[in-house]
Computed example of a mutant assay.
Amino acid sequence: MTIATLEGPQCPTPPTLAIVIVNFNSWPDCERLVEAMASSLERIDGRCELILVDNASETPPPSHFENRSGIQIILCPDNAGFAAGVNTAWRRTTARWLLLLNPDTFADADFPEKILHRIAFYEARTEGPPGLVGFALSNEDGTRQHSVGSFPTLAGCLREVWTPRSRRKYWSLGRTRPGPVPWVTGACLLVQASVMEQIGGMDEDFFLYHEEVALCRLARDRGWTVEFDDSITLGHLRPLQSRRVNPVLRVVTRHSKLLYFLKFRPRWEARILAWVITFEAHVRHAWCRWIGQTEDANAWRAVGSIARTLGSDRGLRGIEVRRFAEQSVRDTAPGCRMGSRRRLKGSRGDRPIRLDARKRSR
């Protein structure tokens, strides 16, 4: 992969913290976030760097980013997903800690300094620092936002049918307390570089969503702790659970959920979930066709195809999923039926998914 890098003046000593922002067509959000932290980054120059990975946005980065001290901009030639973007930044830094931030978060001017103070606190603990830390999130109006959850199970997925969308993946706010937790959202996630090295980075089979759940699961399986820390709060403008899911994203999110089950849950749970999603896709595809929502109907047809394929431990992964979803949604061929075995041209969807028996629950 060819990667172009725009670098401002860099400090020769390894930083303690690398703030990683993965962007796709969100330059205004990135510019707002970077400008908010700019003065703090200058004050702590050398201890913190900012790496902004752009996954082939349609427009170039703001020109004034090039002259910012401690900022690297990595321009990737294609959008290979969030995990791939994070891994690109991780491989380019020597920092001991990485802080993953969504572009649509909003921070105080001293936010990087607060994170460095928390890192110093973690590293001074007698029990040692946690492997991953999720900080508190708030909505634009200041109310708390859900950010901690239990690992997915089949029973939990079935209960989601009767759970408000805003809380399907997450613990209730009343249940969320500082300390060890199963997993935390990737919108604001602090992770030790040692964890990334031991695990091999984020799993790029996930194009978008559930990759942070998988990361936390793998870290815990290897003895690292995952913690929630509410001593710092970061605003988050557009969490998935509070916005409309477009047809392409619907395909991607269903793929990610199925892929997680295939990698980490018992085989029988993955097979049952694949059957349930296939049935859901049939029903929703028929309804969308009936009411004339062509793109949604195409998306559900693609979801059904993915569920049938992943149910046999094979299928698309990473960037292939995004390409398949985009092509499927814009497919306007008349008479396309749910049962058609349409495949993305040039895809390798018949490849087996990489599975590690040690990662699967028994």
Rank of each mutant, 00 (worst) to 15 (best):
residue 103 P to W: 11
residue 51 I to N: 10
residue 64 H to Q: 07
residue 187 A to E: 07
residue 123 E to M: 01
residue 331 D to R: 04
residue 315 G to Y: 00
residue 261 F to Q: 01
residue 214 A to C: 04
residue 2 T to E: 14
residue 257 K to M: 15
residue 344 L to Q: 11
residue 173 L to C: 04
residue 142 G to S: 04
residue 243 R to S: 13
residue 160 E to A: 14
residue 245 V to N: 03
residue 267 R to W: 07
residue 135 F to H: 13
residue 139 N to W: 02
residue 359 K to P: 03
residue 113 E to V: 06
residue 210 H to C: 12
residue 292 G to M: 11
residue 91 R to Y: 05
residue 300 W to Y: 09
residue 322 R to W: 02
residue 76 C to Y: 01
residue 238 R to Y: 13
residue 278 T to E: 13
residue 2 T to R: 12
residue 191 V to F: 09
residue 319 I to C: 11
residue 255 H to K: 10
residue 176 T to V: 06
residue 133 V to N: 00
residue 192 Q to R: 14
residue 266 P to N: 05
residue 77 P to H: 04
residue 157 C to R: 15
residue 35 E to N: 14
residue 68 R to L: 13
residue 128 G to Y: 14
residue 204 E to Y: 01
residue 214 A to W: 01
residue 91 R to F: 14
residue 29 D to P: 12
residue 282 H to M: 13
residue 227 E to Q: 11
residue 218 L to C: 07
residue 113 E to S: 14
residue 8 G to R: 00
residue 1 M to K: 14
residue 326 E to R: 13
residue 233 T to N: 04
residue 355 L to P: 07
residue 203 D to T: 00
residue 65 F to E: 02
residue 166 S to P: 08
residue 348 R to D: 14
residue 89 A to H: 00
residue 159 R to D: 15
residue 232 I to W: 08
residue 13 T to W: 05
residue 21 I to G: 10
residue 230 D to Y: 06
residue 352 P to E: 13
residue 160 E to K: 13
residue 353 I to L: 14
residue 102 N to D: 09
residue 342 R to H: 08
residue 12 P to H: 05
residue 234 L to V: 04
residue 30 C to A: 08
residue 206 F to T: 04
residue 92 R to W: 02
residue 149 G to W: 06
residue 30 C to Q: 08
residue 75 L to I: 15
residue 47 R to K: 08
residue 267 R to D: 08
residue 258 L to Q: 01
residue 274 A to L: 07
residue 241 Q to F: 05
residue 335 G to I: 05
residue 307 A to T: 00
residue 170 Y to C: 05
residue 59 T to Q: 06
residue 242 S to P: 05
residue 101 L to G: 03
residue 181 V to N: 03
residue 94 T to R: 15
residue 345 K to R: 15
residue 238 R to K: 13
residue 199 I to S: 01
residue 85 G to T: 02
residue 110 D to P: 08
residue 328 S to L: 03
residue 330 R to M: 07
residue 254 R to W: 09
residue 46 G to I: 12
residue 11 C to S: 12
